[in-house]
Design a protein around this nucleic acid. Structure first.
Lengths: 350, 350
DNA sequence: CTATGCTAGTAAACGCGTTTACTAATCAGT
DNA sequence: ACTGATTAGTAAACGCGTTTACTAGCATAG
């Protein structure tokens, strides 16, 4: 067992104030009203001894830790970093501590942290994953109480969820490009198995379907990384499907794509227009500043913490937070020559 | 007091294995060797009951939490995000949990977290601050055992410290610019009261002093922010001191500076060369990719965690981790016309 | 004068794992 | 056969705050 801790204990305060430890505890926690005189004795003693309850004892006693866990793939990634900042702030407002864990998308670690959660380490867990699940994660999540899933889905997990409205984001991006005159659109998505990718693609599809002659003529899928953005860009240039605009599924993809286009001598937005997703990476600092669908990152964090504190409904809620288009300078009407091609296609269809 | 927690307790395991709780505890913690048979009985019981020690009880008993705290100004900032990632990884390797707190540079919060640390919440604290101290922080840090200061100093704090070699970084940046032919150099620094700023400036000064005719002809100080980079850039253009190269004290400053130069029609590196510091922000994605002094962020995290685990020496150590210059395409020889001015100055001096 | 209620607290159990100091039993050595 | 050491554990104290159930003493109501 432990050596005595350094600070004063509740019984020291009790002795100094000539009351019982119970009185001190209950007074400090507001479950006992005392005479002015006794209360003052206690407060003086607390101040004099610089008493603060031993958090470990308190947690053992209460059976909770007033701390939540955040599990995410990688804090160094700007999107997750911002998410973490939002959650930290919300947790702090709720007077909850936050313990942070990065999984680097390794499933072993993910399961590990869920386990720690179950063993009462923390009162709740906000979980972000980033890879397709083979069912292991679903089962682990369903067996763990007090987990909230955010940003990306784990299909079949019966836990509260907070996502952004990916479909609407895809739709807004598509509508914006279509309204600017584009008809041959490319899609650079995240991993094809992920909900975010599918929904963003679906939203784009919905927008395109509303405009006769418009088509998603090219698409690619891969991890949400810079390298994948570059790879997709190269593939696009190679296959040359006459795309005049690209909707990319994340900032990272845009960041990887842009230099490839520049290398190839394609001007943005003169030759090709771009809309990104997330709007966290410094898209506004690029040349040109890139338009993007903005995720409500702060709200996601806020809602996640709120859901953790609230009682679990059945079935667990799945919230969709609205996104919006942030227009910058990466979208312009398509170049005339290619535009004519679109018009031809447009004529064939109606 | 608490309702019973859900899982099995040590006494359940003990009962199932027909031994005492002490035996279970000591066996699992490796302080008791048992006969093969008894050991197996315990292990079977542990598995069957899915026993894992209640962490709160364990921490109360041990008087420590196997958890460290990280206090930093803002996780959303890419530099701190990467630092956090490095520390999280190092902590994980040391089997330590990490609780995260953002101060947003508010002193009240900083003191708060030091307090929490003192009250045994965590076994150690890695502290990053970003503003000049009026002595309050110094006093608080000196009163708190188990704090490590990293990245930026709090003068007078007698705690272990891990910094990068700022002076050397400034020197390397300066030497690089001088070697490329620059003689009239500008410095855009962080807050003038900060150690990092002073040291980086000093290193630049040392390099410049070694080359006759070279001078730091212009300098400015302000927060490590994008906005400040832009402001400083505008001020530089305004005062027009004939600077051909700029050493900026952080990535953020570069990111803010670049668009201003571009607006003004100045090409980088054609008209003006730039070297940044940190090399975390996506300097390699800019056009042109910007050269910078790279901080050994992972090593800083690693060392900080290592120092926390080691016994405190007296006086506490202050480690300086090496930086290096990462060359990209933002430095070129100065334009000829201005170069001639430099040569003139060069002639006056020897 | 008794019953009821209120005030101002308190004793003791409880959460649960860890550790010290100790015992009972067996074995080796002489 | 006796001493000393080793083996295989164990009882009980400890870390410390919280909470339930209870009491002693006084006041009000009937």
């Amino acid at each position: 067992m432990a050596a005595r801790s350094n600070g004063a204990r509740i019984r020291d305060v009790a002795a100094a104030a000539a009351v019982s430890p119970a009185a001190v505890s209950r007074y400090l926690n507001g479950t006992l009203t005392l005479t002015r005189e006794t209360a003052e004795r206690i407060e003086r003693a607390v101040r004099r001894l610089d008493y603060r309850p031993n958090p470990h004892a308190r947690r053992l006693s209460l059976g909770r830790s007033e701390t939540i866990g955040l599990v995410l793939p990688d804090i160094a990634n700007p999107f997750f970093a911002r998410l973490a900042a939002a959650i930290e702030e919300a947790a702090d407002r709720a007077r909850l501590g936050l313990v942070l864990s990065a999984t680097l998308n390794r499933q072993g670690r993910e399961l590990d942290y869920i386990e720690r959660m179950r063993s009462n380490h923390v009162d709740g867990l906000i979980f972000v994953t980033n890879h397709t699940d083979d069912g292991t994660l679903r089962r682990a999540l369903n067996a763990a109480p007090g987990v909230i899933l955010i940003d990306e889905d784990v299909p079949g997990a019966a836990v509260p969820k907070v996502f952004c409205d990916n479909e609407e984001g895809g739709f807004l991006a598509g509508r914006h490009l279509l309204a600017t005159g584009h008809r041959r659109i490319g899609f650079i998505g995240g991993p094809s198995g992920l909900m975010s990718t599918r929904e963003r693609r679906a939203g784009l599809g919905r927008a395109v379907a509303q405009v006769p002659g418009a088509m998603v003529v090219w698409e690619s899928f891969g991890p949400y990384t810079l390298a994948e953005g570059a790879r997709a860009g190269a593939a696009l240039l190679e296959s040359a499907p006459g795309v005049t605009a690209i909707f990319a599924g994340s900032d990272e993809l845009v960041l990887g794509l842009l230099p490839v286009l520049r290398e190839a001598g394609l001007g943005v937005p003169k030759d090709i227009s771009i809309v990104g997703f997330d709007d966290i990476g410094p898209l506004h600092l690029l040349d040109p500043p890139v338009s993007a669908i903005r995720q409500p990152v702060s709200d996601i964090g806020e809602r996640a913490v709120a859901l953790l504190s609230s009682d679990t409904a059945d079935p667990p809620p799945c919230e969709r937070l609205p996104v919006r288009l942030v227009e910058r300078n990466s979208v312009a009407p398509p170049p005339a020559s290619i535009n004519r091609v679109n018009i031809r296609i447009g004529r064939q269809k109606p």
